[in-house]
Simulated scan of single mutants.
Amino acid sequence: MKKMIVTLAASIMAIAMASAGEAQERIKVGGIIYARDSQYWQQAERGMNDAAKKLGVDLQIGLNRRQLATEGQLIEDFATRGVNIIVMPPLDTQASGAAAQRVKSRNIMIVDYDTRFADSTISSHTIGVDSRELAGVVGKEMRKLIVASKSESAAAVGLITLPPTNPNMQARRGGVVSALEGANVAYVAEVAAATPEQGANAFENILQRNPATAMIWASNSGSLSGAAAAARRSNAKAKLYGIDMSQELAQMLLDPSSNLQAVSDQQPYLIGYTAVETAVKSFRGEKLARQINVPARLYTREDPKAVTEYLDFVKSLSN
């Protein structure tokens, strides 16, 4: 009996030691998002959490609140807490690199998503949607309508681009222009905007230059929602296309009276999920591509089922 008790005690101790070892070896990931004030970052966070749960890793989420100083402090705090990996969207392609480089020198893996560091040696992997492709997807939808019209007159098109300082400005503009190349198009105006208020002003500016404008493309969710609101107030006929889906834009796609026709989306849930998944698999030794592109997703008023499914998913984020 005494021997049995000793054996049982030794077995319990061995199991406890093994469990402690497993706990020590559990991968710790520090994930950064901008804030929880937009559906984009809410979806990205959900994706990160779902990936961490599936892969059995510990995930801590921090908010940089769109401040470089806060971002730098978050990176340092994660390092102090002993994370193995930091998954982050650099606020500034240049300035964000210093803090990330410091913790990388302490053998912490860095993976960037949404935006990338100017110095590509800082991160092990980059996850995101190609901005040119993102704009091109909705640009092709515009082109289909222009070609189908078989009009001898050029379609008057206005562009609401991102401000020139935004790193995605040129890529997105280039994507939509490339998609429309060869179509019977006349560009009537190009106005920079990023917020709903700026988008509304840009829409009105374009129509003042040419009241017969047939189509207006906007390069982000904020400017697109502002343009759509302005279109409703003015009873303008210009059809709207743009980038980055939101609950508000989805509801507009389902509204027969709205001017909104199509929106290309970055799939932020999938970006967040893929960022954590890639980081953890790479940390565990799996060989993965340096650059991992998430495909853009197109939502149109012709496919209300997909739009409704998107709305159901967004509503689930609050549960």
Rank of each mutant, 00 (worst) to 15 (best):
M245A: 10
D265C: 08
T7Q: 13
M4W: 15
D50C: 03
A186F: 08
T126V: 11
L162I: 06
V185M: 02
G82T: 09
T161Y: 04
P295M: 01
F283P: 08
T115W: 08
G31P: 04
G272P: 02
Y40T: 09
I160T: 01
M13F: 13
G158L: 07
T300G: 10
A154H: 07
N201M: 14
E197K: 12
R65E: 15
A99E: 02
P268H: 04
Q266V: 09
Q42G: 11
K315L: 09
V307L: 09
A100H: 06
L59F: 02
Q247G: 11
S257P: 04
V103P: 05
P196M: 06
V314W: 01
S149W: 01
S38M: 08
L91V: 05
P167N: 13
T165R: 14
A9K: 04
L207R: 07
D37Y: 10
K104E: 10
V83Y: 01
N49C: 08
Q43R: 15
R209T: 10
D255R: 05
T7H: 11
T165H: 14
S221Y: 04
A289T: 01
S11Y: 12
V188G: 03
V176L: 03
A18W: 10
S11W: 12
G199R: 06
D77H: 06
M109E: 07
A23N: 11
V87L: 03
V307N: 12
S225K: 10
L317D: 06
L91K: 03
A171H: 06
L145V: 12
